[in-house]
Amino acid sequence: MDIGSFLINAILLVFLAATAIAVARLQNLFAGAMLFGIYSLLSAGVFVVLDAVDVAFTEAAVGAGIATILMLSTIALTGIKHESIPIRPLRSLLLVAVVGAALIYGTFDMPRFGDAEAPAHQHVALRYLQQSGDEIGIPNVVTSVLASYRGYDTLGEVAVIFTAGIGVLCLLGGSRRRRTDPADKS
């Protein structure tokens, strides 16, 4: 196994887990959003170590940048900075323990880290790696798959983003006009 990469990846994952648990424990929403920024940065670091440079690029620009700022601006717009105590934490803990145990049991059948013989690497990915250089003519295989072999997926993605943008505009465009009259809030 590729020990250097694996160790760096493991350390970053431990940081990631610590950050997630800290987010769960914090009552202050603002601090939670800040730690979520760290969480995004760390996950992008993990992506770089696991060779997914394009994913890390997107996560940097979109996850760490936009998502954190969206959360902060929501906190600013609602003016709520603290959350109250968790509801029914014991029931949630029980649910989490049961589901987590089942998932851990499921992982024992997964291929080991970095296994080149894993089923995921046997089918179409091999063809992409060997042929896309000749067929598409650009070195970045991820881009050729995204824009050419699976171009319709990307079209669907754009449709989803467009719908979400329209939805946000519909939800927030009207509320600004209504807020000019704070008296009828009752």
């Binding site: 196994m1 590729d2 696991l50 060779d51 997914a52 440079v53 997964m110 291929p111 880290f113 970095g114 296994d115 080149a116 894993a118 995921a120 690497h121 790696l129 896309s132 250089g133 070195p139 970045n140 295989v141 991820v142």
Partner: peptide, 12 residues
């Protein structure tokens, strides 16, 4: 799942 040991990023 996508990582291969001693592999590098899929940029030819």
């Amino acid at each position: 799942i996508g990582k291969v040991s001693f592999g590098t990023a899929p940029i030819l």
